[in-house]
């Protein structure tokens, strides 16, 4: 049976691709340290596969075809869209998939009872996936199962649904009939605005109160409070892409709603970056 060996929450700001590299600028040293810490934790855990819960940015899934939640099932995933390469200098790459874990999540002939998930057999991954992979697995030597959640194109799933997704992923991974160590990586934002009046404030948060509350939910393992605090209007008021914070709720729930072993909103020239980690004692142990 597969084993869930860790759950993480990380940022995926594409501007990091060119700025978060040695020698690290003073304001990004802490982010580099956090990514290194998490990369070490993944290595120490023996994880062979990363299930990455993120939100594609209108490239693979656009308004003409927008699933609520969709799971990759492919042998390989290329990364890097032309606009990301042009604007952010992101280099294209390719990572291996893990079809057995995809099947554990999706089923093969019928979908799981409580989740009508979409499936993708061919998927060019964007920076929601390539940024975490670059810093968590610099050698790109772990297999990946990407999951896209629609946090960008309303109507979006509710916060409660993101929690249920996390609970489901833990159960499905632990029931997978393969010998595999799996970590879940969730990626999203604290208060972040893009395209609106509060974008690019030079390190000031568009909503410091939300950031502090969000980190506290993770530090204390307060799922019910987090669901209450993540209504659509509240999240958008914190910045128009803050809806992606809900991916991090999936992480909290996948870890059984336990207090994070590490929870920080890391300050830099950018909006605060979410770095969360949970240990994952096996269910029922």
């Amino acid at each position: 049976m597969a084993e869930l060996v860790g759950v993480f929450g990380v940022p995926h700001n594409p501007l990091l691709w060119e700025t978060l590299r040695p020698p690290y600028p003073d304001d990004l040293e802490r982010a580099a340290e956090n990514f290194d810490r998490f990369s070490g934790l993944i290595q120490d855990s023996g994880a062979e596969t990363l299930v990455i819960v993120g939100s594609d940015h209108f490239r693979r899934f656009f308004f003409d075809n927008s699933p609520a939640i969709i799971v990759g099932k492919a042998e390989r995933y290329p990364t890097g869209y032309p606009n990301e390469i042009r604007t952010f200098g992101i280099e294209p790459n390719e990572v291996a998939g893990d079809v057995a874990i995809s099947e554990a999540i999706l089923g093969t002939t019928n979908l799981p009872g409580n989740f009508d998930l979409g499936m993708s057999n061919e998927w060019l991954l964007d920076h929601a996936y390539s940024i975490p992979l670059r810093y968590l697995t610099p050698r790109h030597d772990l297999a990946v199962v990407p999951i896209h959640t629609n946090c960008n194109m309303p109507p979006v799933p509710t916060a409660r649904r993101f929690v249920e997704l996390g609970e489901y992923l833990r159960t499905a991974i632990e029931a997978a009939p393969v010998d595999r160590k799996v970590a879940i990586v969730t990626t999203g934002h604290l208060a972040t605005d893009l395209g609106g009046p509060k974008q690019f404030l030079g390190g000031a948060s568009p909503d410091a109160e939300f950031d502090a509350q969000a980190v506290e939910w993770m530090r204390t393992g307060s799922i019910a409070d987090a669901i209450d605090g993540c209504g659509f209007e509240r999240l958008v008021n914190a910045g128009n892409v803050t809806l992606q914070f809900m991916n991090l709720l999936t992480g909290l729930a996948a870890a059984g709603g336990r207090p994070a072993t590490f929870a920080e909103g890391t300050a830099s020239r950018y909006a605060a970056m979410a770095f969360f980690h949970w240990d994952t004692p096996r269910s029922g142990r």
Binding site: F58, T87, N152, M153, G195
Partner: peptide
């Protein structure tokens, strides 16, 4: 217009 798409 979607603000993310607009700024990009």
């Amino acid at each position: 217009a979607h603000p993310y798409l607009l700024i990009h």
